[in-house]
Design a protein around this nucleic acid. Structure first.
Length: 436
RNA sequence: GCGAACUUAGCUCAGUUGGUUAGAGCGUCCGGUUGUGGUCCGGAAGGUCGAGGGUUCGAGACCCUUAGUUCGCCCCA
């Protein structure tokens, strides 16, 4: 079957068991750190009224212009699959009156997202992000703590030193409007010296003009108006204090005056985690402050900060770093059996072992000892328990250490306790899972 | 959305200037006599060479179309 009848659509992929080891691990680390910092988990729908996104992200952003998966109901209502997390969280915040909650409101999410763009490695049409939002506090200490949380998660995932934190401030919304005007004024009349891309950038995203790699454009960029001259004092001060906090927290960062983010709602602080390696799709995540967004979405003016990171890209970097997540699926015990009576008896034994919190697999549909042991080996079982007709009669069972290759015949009576002793007690054993 | 490369068994890849029944390694399954794995030996299954069309006596190899993947641009997760 070299050409399967069906395959997954372009740019979307199955998450296979081996990759779920990474997914589960990342989820665990994220939950652990968010919980400790007082965040609570939120999930928003996979699709929303399209305006939730167009209004928040900004009509001229790439995401809204060409990367949204749109849906239309039979009655003509327009929806879009969520391309990022913040818009939906803010919508939920306002819809459920979370303004009433003690401030700041701290929320985190681990969710699939969708963008209709041309797939490449690390850039898919369905991808997963974890992220967090802190709503209702403007103090730069919160920015610092959000950045620290992201950094700390990267540390526990083993990729912190492979990433560099790029940091910048983009001022208030007014500052940026003013700066864009200044830039356009400066470049007007100089279009002839610009490359084709920059001519387009001038109309679509003037801030990107400063970032062009063409030599002529760089010369012009070096003479262009400086953002420092436009930025308001409040934003400058906010940024200065943030940098001090980051130093106090020992979070290394690089100032990057050219860092701008693709979503319109950001204000003041912006940051991204970039790979230290050369490459294009190299940001694992990023975020920033969005003090204007809640008002844009119909709420009271409310300051907020957040960040989000891509799980697929994070996994890429973990693999590069040689990080192997723990395998909670590993089989501890394989139960082999011979004869009908033994098979029947083994079914109960398997369940008793499982109830002790052990991962146990039994042979089903395999009759020869040889193929059963072969299976135990390939499953990577630490121990095999062998129950045959003789053992059933004698009230014994064979316990085989697969790694050592040695085995002994022990009493069937105490085998469950013995296995628990050998493999370590599981705190969840014999306990209702909903009890703390 | 633009430019380019790639696409042969489950996986990683061979396949000489177009020529007989398309190969290897790994993996899978089954054996190497009585109830035992990982090594070794033997055997088997598995491919209409991404799909569709064309050129040719003849195409995995050449041409066109299409799909997917990857790289660059754009942008970001």
């Amino acid at each position: 079957m070299s050409a399967p009848l069906y395959q997954s659509p372009k740019g979307v992929h199955d998450v296979l068991p081996d990759d779920h080891l990474y997914f589960s691990f990342i989820k665990k680390v994220v939950r652990h750190h968010c919980r400790r910092a007082g965040y609570r988990r939120i999930s928003t729908p996979i699709f929303e009224d399209i305006e939730v996104f167009t209004r928040s992200i900004g009509g001229t952003s790439d995401i809204v212009e060409k990367e949204m998966f749109t849906l239309e109901s039979k009655s003509g209502k327009k929806y879009a699959l969520k391309p990022e997390g913040t818009a939906g969280v803010v919508r939920a915040y306002l819809e459920h009156g979370m303004q009433q909650m003690p401030k700041p409101v701290e929320l985190y999410y681990i969710e699939p997202h969708f963008r209709y763009n041309r797939p490449q490695k690390g850039r898919y049409r369905q991808f997963h992000q974890f992220g967090c939002e802190v709503i209702g506090e403007s103090d730069p200490a919160v920015d610092a703590q959000v950045i620290y949380l992201a950094y700390r998660i990267n540390q526990d995932l083993g990729i912190a030193d492979r990433l560099s934190l790029q940091l910048n401030t983009i001022g208030s919304m007014e500052d940026r409007v003013k700066f864009k005007e200044d830039l356009i004024n400066f470049y007007t009349g100089k279009e002839r010296s610009l490359c084709e891309d920059c001519k387009r950038r001038m109309l679509e995203n003037p801030l990107r003009l400063l970032d062009c790699k063409e030599e002529d454009c760089q010369i012009l960029a070096s003479m262009a108006p400086k953002f420092e001259n436009v930025i308001c004092n409040e934003s400058k001060e906010h940024f200065e204090i943030l940098k001090e906090y980051l130093e106090e927290l020992n979070v290394p960062y690089e100032l990057n005056p050219l860092l701008v983010r693709g979503l319109d709602y950001y204000t003041h602080t912006v940051f991204e985690f970039w790979s230290k390696k050369e490459g294009s799709q190299n940001a694992t995540g990023g975020g920033g402050r969005y003090d204007g967004l809640i008002e844009i979405m119909g709420g009271q003016p409310t300051p907020a900060v957040g960040f989000a990171a891509g799980i697929e890209r994070t996994i890429e970097y973990m693999k590069e770093a040689g990080i192997r997540p723990p395998n909670k699926d590993a089989v501890a015990i394989f139960v082999a059996q011979l004869g009908l009576v033994a098979k029947k008896k083994s079914l109960t034994l398997i369940n008793k072992l499982r109830d002790q919190g052990l991962n146990v697999v039994g042979a089903v549909g395999k009759d020869s000892m040889k193929s059963q042991m072969g299976l135990a080996d390939r499953l990577g079982a630490q121990y095999s328990l062998i129950l045959g007709q003789i053992e059933v009669q004698e009230g014994t069972i064979i316990l085989r250490d697969m790694k050592k290759g040695s085995q002994e015949t022990v009493s069937y009576e105490g085998i469950v306790d013995k296995m628990v002793e050998l493999l370590g007690k599981n705190p969840l054993a014999n306990k209702k899972l909903w009890e703390e």
